[in-house]
Design a protein around this nucleic acid. Structure first.
Lengths: 190, 190
DNA sequence: GTCTATACGGTGATAGAC
DNA sequence: GTCTATCACCGTATAGAC
């Protein structure tokens, strides 16, 4: 996607990282300037409409980043149930390690900006749809019915978004771990 | 809980309503002043530490508000699976009606303030724990094992918090509806 | 194209009159 | 106890020099 590390890409990557951890309103332009090392004037040169425009591209970047993460895990494990379970286990483990490297669920950004920016909401929706498509594809490969795969992809997405919220609120990975353990029982019917 | 409608209670109720819809950073003191009709000076008289202190009491108020809602539904339906399913169906319906009267999941507030206020995070955690306790109790009454009831209460909470996030992001009640439909299949094992 | 200096509005917070 | 007037600060955004 990003062919060379020009100022614009550096800005998008920095913004993506920060929004992922502190949310939309939790990050100021000042923070993005500091994190990226790119001065404010340049930011407005590349993103004339300012924070909102940058956020939309940052969310799209986060979307791709997560797609890569999911796909990498899915390529290693053939069974969809085990693969999804492993993905959630992985999320739960990230908590134990380094504070909050995991970050917030994407739905949080949508929720924050729900009343102020329709475009940001749509960028978040696109991300969710793409992620769910990966789950659907994986389930179809294992002979789940089309209808069931679609339904389960929503359930899985909700469990992940909600599970992250729970683990964040409780400040430990246990809720996500419990959810991961339940996955085989939850997704037993094809 | 609130014995008379004094200024303090009016402030808490107004703040609870606003935070529930727009989140912590989405609501300014100005909004709370306007919504409640109580002047700023009085706000600082009752809540010397300002917005954070008021938010903690507002979250606690929201907690009780939701407890009442869940319990009311649960008293009507004996079967825990049906009761939980009905609760989520109800949430999905609120979306169709009046824009975003439903509001954000409580975990969103925790996520927003995760890096800035430990106390707000804890207030959110208490709310989640209380809600989960109600699910546990309901499941135990229907002969689910203690261990299983505890696990499922986490799964249910994640499905609700995540489901709200999904419906909010998609701007319609379908994700919550799909989740509600899956509940019987998901919680089949005791 | 890149960066600096500055403007402007809104935020949470406070002092002090009534 | 209640409210008004005002503060200092930080947020986004812009103008214009290099």
């Amino acid at each position: 996607m990003a062919e060379k590390r020009n100022s614009k890409d550096i800005l998008i990557e920095a913004a993506s990282r920060l929004f992922r951890i502190r949310g939309y309103y939790g990050v100021g332009l000042k923070d993005i300037i500091e994190e990226s090392g790119i001065p404010k004037g340049s930011l407005y040169h590349y993103f004339p409409k300012g924070k909102e425009e940058l956020a939309i591209e940052a969310i799209s970047h986060t979307k791709e980043f997560v797609i890569d993460e999911i796909k990498r895990g899915f390529d290693e494990i053939e069974d969809p149930i085990k693969a999804i379970q492993s993905h959630i286990f992985h999320l739960s483990e990230v908590f134990g390690d380094s504070e909050n490297l995991l970050g917030l669920p994407i739905g949080t950004i949508a929720a924050e900006t729900y009343t102020t920016s329709e475009q940001i909401r749509m960028a978040c929706q696109e991300a969710m749809e793409d992620w769910q498509s990966i789950y659907v594809k994986k389930l179809l490969e294992a002979d789940f019915s089309e209808k069931r795969a679609k339904e389960l992809s929503i359930v899985i997405n909700a469990l992940i978004e909600g599970g992250i919220l729970l683990s964040l609120t409780a400040k430990n990975g246990e809720p996500l771990q419990t959810i991961a353990e339940q996955i085989p029982l939850l997704l037993i019917n094809k």
